[in-house]
């Protein structure tokens, strides 16, 4: 059995495996497939609650992942934001002495969530410029034409 606490290294190694089998395109295909197949709960929450659906979704996941974060919801301004001070997933990968994280491990977050949120009328912007230090942010806004 692979414990849920061992999933992140399994995930990182999967990206590496897929890239070896089919190049970067194969990794992207998998991320899109996973978004469609696995993030139905985020999609349903945002369809029902709008931006608050993001708050509800990440309130559950980030607390269970023991993340170090600040989350903001401003429904009047139409903006939701996560400031990740220390990502537990990237932090875990960086703490392993015997394994290297997949070179674009953090890229999956941007692809998976944008693929859910953009068709629902939201703009999703990820700042991964500090992800090598396990820090990032995601901002979700109502699209101007919604």
């Amino acid at each position: 059995m692979i414990s849920c606490t061992e999933f992140i290294p399994a995930y990182s190694e999967l990206f590496r495996y897929l890239e070896e089998r089919g190049g970067r395109e194969e990794v992207m295909r998998f991320w899109e497939d996973l978004s469609d197949r696995f993030l139905g709960n985020l999609r349903a929450l945002v369809e029902e609650h709008g931006l608050r659906g993001c708050w509800l979704y990440w309130s559950h996941t980030l607390n269970e992942e023991a993340a170090d974060f600040r989350m903001e919801l401003d429904e009047e301004a139409g903006e939701f934001r996560i400031i990740m001070r220390h990502c537990p997933s990237k932090g875990l990968l960086m703490s392993l002495d015997h394994m290297e994280p997949y070179h674009d491990y953090c890229g999956h977050c941007d692809v998976l969530y944008r693929r859910v949120l953009e068709p629902l009328g939201y703009e999703c912007v990820a700042d991964l410029s500090e992800c090598d230090e396990a820090r990032c942010s995601i901002t979700v806004r109502r699209s101007a034409n919604k």
Partner: peptide, 18 residues
């Protein structure tokens, strides 16, 4: 504005949805 602020030590690491 609603804010949630958490430190890693506030929670146990156990995300079964993985």
């Amino acid at each position: 504005l609603e804010v949630m602020d958490r430190r890693a030590s506030d929670n146990e690491y156990l995300h079964r949805d993985f």
